[in-house]
């Protein structure tokens, strides 16, 4: 005993070893219980893998959306056109407002702009003054960007218009845009098939 104490483990050591063994036994017991008691435990890793992949996929598609085609007061028409949208100045014509690159230009009421906002002839005027101001700003900004990137400036705009927009308002918007030196337009549409336009189910 005395030898033991002198040469080997002390009392504290023994206590510690005992405690350690007890812990190990407990751990082994609980592991065994996990294995055969509750059957194979739910493996959360594979679930996590799925969720993380979904998250990445959704985040990617979230960031890719170049144009907002559906909103509270906006739904663009369907078309069989297959051309991909490109980055350009956008003019959004919703049922309640006209926006240039997401900046509010002018309000729309009952499919028309207030005649006082139009230059030249009130009701029959074609040019919408606040829209022209916003467009000039946007065009100037775009020109500067292109100059910095050393690319040629193309006078183009993407028009995102609600499907119920009256033709008259569309003309006013296009006319105003042409006064801001824009003459190539792209109408944003929801990609669809030709057959679905005629009321036939899409293939």
């Amino acid at each position: 005993m005395a030898d033991n104490q002198q040469g080997g483990f002390g009392h504290d050591d023994e206590e510690w070893i005992k405690a350690q063994r007890a812990r190990e036994a407990k751990r082994a017991k609980s592991a065994a219980r996990r294995e055969d008691g509750d059957g194979p435990g739910l493996n959360i890793n594979s679930l996590m893998d799925i969720l993380v992949i979904m998250l990445v996929f959704l985040l990617k598609s979230y960031g890719e959306e170049p144009l907002k085609a559906i909103d509270e007061d906006l739904k663009v028409p369907q078309s069989a056109s297959q051309l991909a949208p490109e980055d350009a100045t956008t003019v959004t014509v919703t049922r309640t407002a006209i926006l240039v690159n997401d900046n509010l230009a002018v309000d729309v009421k009952d499919g028309a702009v207030d005649p006082s906002q139009k230059s030249g002839g009130g009701e029959s005027g074609m040019s919408i003054t606040p829209l022209l101001d916003e467009l000039n700003k946007a065009v100037e900004q775009k020109k500067n960007e292109q100059r910095l990137l050393q690319e040629d400036y193309v006078p183009e705009a993407t028009i995102i218009a609600d499907q119920t927009t009256p033709h008259r308002l569309m003309l006013e918007v296009l006319f105003t845009a042409s006064q801001a030196q824009l003459n190539q337009f792209r109408f944003a549409v929801i990609k669809s098939t030709f057959s679905s336009l005629g009321g036939q189910p899409a293939e």
């Binding site: 969720l51 979904m54 998250l55 959704l58 985040l59 598609s61 979230y62 959306e65 170049p66 144009l67 085609a69 559906i70 663009v76 078309s79 056109s81 297959q82 051309l83 991909a84 949208p85 490109e86 074609m126 993407t158 003309l171 296009l174 006319f175 845009a177 042409s178 006064q179 030196q181 003459n183 190539q184 337009f185 792209r186 109408f187 944003a188 549409v189 929801i190 990609k191």
Partner: peptide, 26 residues
Amino acid sequence: ILIPMLLLSVVFMEVSVINVTMPLGG
């Protein structure tokens, strides 16, 4: 929490464009 939020915001519709010209000055 993130997945349902993103699923709701995703629009499963592809947007395309129609090219139109309008001569300067309308």
